[in-house]
Design a protein around this nucleic acid. Structure first.
Lengths: 300, 300
DNA sequence: GGTTGGCATGCGGGCCGCGCATATCTCCTC
DNA sequence: GAGGAGATATGCGCGGCCCGCATGCCAACC
């Protein structure tokens, strides 16, 4: 009202422009003047004119209205992916290819949305989701144990079968599909020195304790030992594209190792933001592309 | 509400901090969300948390509130003369001493108020007052013709009797008080070449037409002719302090020349701003000081 | 499994704010 | 000089908005 009245020079005209009567405007202005303790308009015989105080009030009022408009614009930008930020988390193997591919495609499509990725194991990501520190997580879990997770909104992306990497010269290499039992006598290299901590727990369920002579957390180191023919190791299929060309991968028999599934996860009760809604399809797309490139191995 | 709820993490606590119930806050937030078309808070089991959109809205809302506070501060500053501007006008002679003295004292007392002075004859100043281009004017008028002015809020400052400046060697010099009739044979220097346009119209009312041999608008030039003994001239007492020391001034007999009065004037119906209210006392003070310094000549 | 803390919502009431009508004032015109 | 035009201020009455109360429901905590 302040603005319209100031622009038009009378309560009557200002009110008309806003669909109010002169009496409503008169009272509104009066009330504002009372609240501010000063006259905002000089009442002249043919209309009104801003006082010095009125000019000051008008400047600030227009600035305030502009901020409210800016809020609307900002929110529209967020919803249209013309702005915003996506904080996501992923377990390490997912960052070999799945998450980077999806992120690259998303950034090309929506360059104004900034994307941050935190690496961590699934249980940590779940905590970050629940505290609101990340908006979206790529996690992994055995399909029949999903129920053990805290309540989350999950979406299945792909399955991640475990491959085995025997040395080139190994008699079992190039067989294509191996049973885990056939590897009971092999020497292993793994993340930890007991089978329980690693993927090798599958061996325990199969009835033997693998012999772990070498321990290395770094993937590069493991590959070195494998390529030198010193040990064999297990490789999640998600990481298969990062394996050295002189290492051959073979599938494990499906019954031998429970297949881990990969999911996107968001916190329950938290409405998915536009950036989350927008990012998930790129993860789905990247997962599909990876399945196609390695036909017959990682499957849904 | 947005701010309090965001700060405290729940509708209940936010409402309590503002003296509202949880239900009122819930509805307010809901209404705002509907208007903006987006969720501002995620509803969690133990409270709420801002969404990305909510954060954007909050930033702008706080900025808008800050502008409203700034408006209050600005207005308080204007009213406390800690800010603001005063546009005034004055007729030329008033700017010899009266207005400069008042302005200097005002600026010392209220350095944050900027003062602008427009010079012009009374009738122009009246126009500027009525259009709102100046807030305060120092004008002059014959006391019995004040009623002819358009309606204004006037305040009498002082009377401005007319003095005469005869040459030093003139036989009438040093007489102290002169009658206008005694000057009928003199040679004059004035602003225009006919008596009607100038202060010399007083001579016509006295029954003689003064002989104007010299015309000069600049005061310096007039004083030069007077000091050289070539002519005499009339001097408003307001300007007497700017007269060269080698020129002697004499009062005219009160009946001979109508005494002009000096007033402050503001537009009718326009509430005097704090700066106007604040400036007028300094004009009154300056006028009093000038009366004291020239005792017996300019009077109330 | 009960308790607690929190949000959503139906219901009722009070107050605010608007429109209508009118009083009043100034300017303009005849 | 009188009347009309155009503007604001204000009494009056009504409708709608907004709040508080009470309740329902849900998830987390003990």
């Amino acid at each position: 009202m302040l603005r319209e009245v100031a622009r038009r020079g009378s309560f009557t005209a200002g009110g008309q422009a806003l669909g109010f009567t002169q009496s409503a405007v008169s009272r509104q202005v009066s009330a504002l003047e009372d609240e501010l303790g000063t006259r905002l308009f000089d009442r002249l015989p043919r209309g009104v004119r801003l006082t010095e105080e009125g000019r000051a009030a008008l400047v600030h009022a227009e600035a305030a209205l502009e901020r409210l408009d800016a809020a609307r614009r900002d929110i529209a930008a967020l919803r249209g992916l013309a702005a915003g930020r996506l904080r996501m988390g992923a377990f390490p193997t997912a960052e070999t290819e799945l998450v980077p591919r999806a992120t690259a495609a998303f950034r090309t499509a929506h360059p104004a949305v900034s994307v941050g990725v935190t690496e961590g194991p699934t249980h940590e990501l779940v905590g970050l989701l629940r505290t609101g520190e990340i908006d979206l997580a790529v996690i992994t879990a055995h399909p029949d144990r999903v129920a053990e997770l805290p309540p989350l909104a999950l979406r299945h992306l792909l399955d991640d079968p475990i491959l085995v990497a025997p040395p080139q010269r190994h008699p079992l290499a190039h067989r294509g599909v191996l049973g885990l039992g056939e590897l009971a006598e092999e020497t292993w290299i793994a993340d930890g020195d007991t089978a329980e901590e690693t993927l090798l727990s599958a061996c325990l369920r199969k009835g033997f304790r693998p012999r772990i002579d070498y321990v290395a957390r770094e993937w590069t180191a493991k590959q070195g030992f494998v390529a030198a023919g010193l040990a064999i190791t297990l490789v999640p299929s998600l990481a298969s594209s990062a394996v050295r060309p002189d290492i051959v991968l073979a599938a494990l028999h499906p019954d031998d190792a429970p297949i881990r599934a990969v999911y996107t996860a968001t916190a329950p009760g938290v409405a998915a933001s536009a950036s989350v809604e927008g990012f998930v399809p790129f993860l789905v797309e990247a997962a599909a592309a990876m399945r196609e490139r390695a036909p017959g191995r990682p499957g849904t």
